[in-house]
Design a protein around this nucleic acid. Structure first.
Lengths: 177, 177
DNA sequence: CACTACATGTAAACTGTTACATGATTCA
DNA sequence: TGAATCATGTAACAGTTTACATGTAGTG
């Protein structure tokens, strides 16, 4: 189960509470890589504590508990990251819709493609803006997820938008074929 | 549950048996959009038959059954495709690994990134070759999943490879920061 | 005739989601 | 003080995977 590894990885970057982790999943991580809800995160953290992969190192306001990775956890994470990945088995509903376009009549397919392209454009614009604001604040230095994720997302959005535009043009050129 | 819609979509493109559908999921579809195993497909087809979304229209050798979408199924598919998608919640283990790079020491991260870039390059090469072979065989015309999926995959691979190369350069320039 | 690919299925175990629930702190 | 956000959790249900099971047709 990759939820374990995702939590291990996030905590290796920076100690955090379950709540903070769940916010991470709702933002960048959940949009591009891995989504998880808080109802799966809290029980999993408890299980991982039992396995000695993480530990509670502090308690804050509102009963919040800060978790940190143990040495054992860090080792397990490294082992997982460096082990050969099994073949990509993906689940992405947005993309599934695009793959089923041919089941629609061309007019409907064009509607969907245009909507998709627009969505990608907006996503790219949002990320580009975030990146500019970030560069202004912290022109150098490493900051974990942020920069790498933003760049990844940007390129991803642009690639999908480019594909959608290509598909639109192709569909318009050969309405039936 | 998008498995229903995925099956509906594939069958709308072309009638098929459960076995053929499962092959589809093992190939392009499962790699970019949606994966499903045969053990979930067969029961789901039976459920969908019960709901009147698909029907068995032929029996072939080795007890194989060919399914087709009914009008009701086609309607449900169209409704789903044109309905506003809920926000993208993605699960992609490969990408998760890339997002957790900073949890590794730079040397390990570089190993992973190089391996990733190479994998993307190979994927792109395989698809490009497939496309050439396809163009030779059928220079025009629509053929369902093939062309759209191949182009999508190609752009996806290239975008991820580009990102990885960018990340490698970035890491090499600022080994610690 | 043995092996591989075709073709379908069931059941238990596991994982994840939805709905529900509770309390703490901050801010207008 | 009421609303919003922080912060954590449980339980029933839905969905998926893993392991097991069975038989058929073609190929060397």
């Amino acid at each position: 189960m990759s939820l374990t590894q995702a939590l291990l990885g996030l905590l290796a970057l920076e100690p955090a509470s379950g709540y903070e982790l769940s916010k991470e999943f709702e933002r960048d991580l959940g949009r591009y890589a891995w989504y998880a809800s808080h109802t799966s995160i809290y029980p999993e953290l408890i299980r991982m504590t039992g396995r000695g992969l993480v530990e509670v190192t502090g308690e804050g306001a509102r009963r919040s508990r800060t978790y940190e990775v143990t040495d054992k956890g860090r080792e397990e994470l490294r082992k997982w990251l460096l082990s050969p990945p099994d073949l990509g088995r993906v689940r992405n509903e947005q993309v599934l819709r695009m793959f089923l376009l041919d089941a629609l009549e061309p007019a409907d397919a064009l509607i969907l493609l245009r909507r998709f392209a627009e969505g990608m454009e907006q996503g790219a614009a949002t990320l580009a803006e975030l990146r500019v604001r970030h560069d202004e604040k912290a022109p150098t230095g490493r900051d974990g997820l942020g920069v790498l994720a933003a760049e990844y997302g940007l390129r991803q959005y642009e690639a999908m938008r480019g594909w959608a535009l290509w598909a639109i043009e192709r569909l318009e050129r050969t309405p039936e074929a």
